[in-house]
């Protein structure tokens, strides 16, 4: 309990720092699924560890100890967690859960709105063209639509247009909004996972780019379409300030102009190992916690047994029954 409960935090921090830069270089489809696994396991590990730490604090509140029939004194003696740590964990857990709820509500609203707009778009075709500054996106719906502006279509050549449509179709067919939504929910629960969600967004674009390249049959065509579209959009609107470290679009174009990323096993194996470590430590911490609680309950039962003689029989009924149950369980375990 002393060490293992903190391991999921360490694993989460390590993965949050290491995974995003590596994921950007891997083949995008397995990278996206790997990011889903990382987000899922670290979110569970993070929440579980916080809950265990918070519980050790909550369990020492006398009223709760009475309800659960365990001895506060024994728990306090065995418990290696500072009360401040437990309180901090409870706070972090509550904040995470509230922000998860808020994020979930917002995302559902967005999805409903996008779905509605998809249905309301003019025409009964997959493609809806709007008269406007260059823009292209694919709102998910049933069915999803592709919205492209006339300016965007005009800035691309014939192959480039095919690449653009194939890219947006890949987003819709792969249900990429579900991936993105999942990562964002994980990041809402645990802010450490925010870089992971950002990397996920990039990986999804790369995934769609590679699908488009497979569809068009030439990766350079897609590279040019992406570059041209971005330049056309930049001519009309420029964000006031953006990181000057080389944004997503140049990275995508570079990746498409280079040979396809090689399949590698080592990063996946290493990440998988860390995730297994995270799960194992959480399980270990949970079982330690359970044993600690058992001991505290046992001590409480012993206390009841000692004081039973001086107590009126009827007042001892409930704790007595509980202790018998506890006893039986203990013996059963020993016989097994």
């Amino acid at each position: 309990m002393l060490v293992s409960v903190y391991v999921p935090f360490l694993v989460t921090a390590a993965l949050a720092a290491l995974v995003p830069p590596i994921a950007r270089r891997l083949p995008p489809r397995p990278a996206a699924w790997a990011l889903v696994c990382v987000a899922l396991v670290t979110a569970v590990g993070w929440t579980g560890s916080l809950a265990l730490l918070a519980f050790t604090g909550v369990a020492q509140i006398p009223q709760i100890a009475k309800e659960g029939h365990w001895s506060v004194a024994v728990l306090r003696a065995e418990d290696p967690v500072y009360l401040a740590v437990a309180a901090g964990s409870a706070l972090a857990l509550a904040t995470g859960i509230v922000s998860l709820g808020v994020a979930a509500v917002r995302q559902i609203r967005r999805l409903v709105r996008a779905r509605q707009e998809c249905a309301d778009l003019p025409g009964r075709t997959e493609l809806a063209v709007v008269d406007d500054v260059p823009l292209a996106f694919a709102p998910p719906g049933a069915p999803g639509r592709i919205v492209v502006s006339r300016g965007m279509l005009r800035c691309l050549d014939d192959d480039g247009r095919a690449a653009l449509l194939a890219h947006e179709r890949a987003h819709l067919a792969g249900r990429h909004h579900l991936f993105q939504g999942f990562w964002r929910l994980a990041a809402a629960l645990n802010p450490l996972l925010r870089p992971l969600a950002a990397a996920g967004g990039f990986v999804l674009e790369r995934w769609a780019d590679e699908e488009a390249a497979a569809c068009v049959g030439d990766r350079r065509v897609v590279a040019h379409a992406v570059a041209r579209a971005a330049l056309a959009s930049a001519a009309t609107s420029r964000p006031p300030a953006l990181a000057a470290t080389g944004g997503a679009v140049p990275q995508r174009v570079k990746a498409l102009l280079s040979p396809p990323p090689a399949r590698r096993r080592l990063p996946f194996a290493a990440g998988g190992l860390l995730l297994v470590l995270c799960c194992a430590s959480l399980a270990n911490a949970a079982s330690d916690n359970d044993r600690m609680l058992d001991n505290a309950q046992w001590a409480q039962c012993a206390l009841y047994a000692d004081t039973a003689r001086s107590w009126p029989a009827d007042r001892e009924v409930r704790p007595g029954l509980h202790c018998v149950d506890h006893d039986r369980r203990e013996h059963g375990e020993r016989h097994l």
């Binding site: 995302q107 967005r110 999805l111 996008a114 823009l135 292209a136 996106f137 694919a138 709102p139 998910p140 965007m152 653009l164 890219h167 947006e168 987003h171 990429h176 909004h177 993105q180 939504g181 964002r184 967004g201 999804l204 674009e205 992406v226 579209a229 971005a230 959009s233 930049a234 609107s237 420029r238 964000p239 953006l242 944004g247 997503a248 679009v249």
Partner: peptide, 9 residues
């Protein structure tokens, strides 16, 4: 989360 544009800014 819902709408990824073809090209970002």
């Amino acid at each position: 989360a819902v709408l990824a544009r073809f090209v970002s800014e």
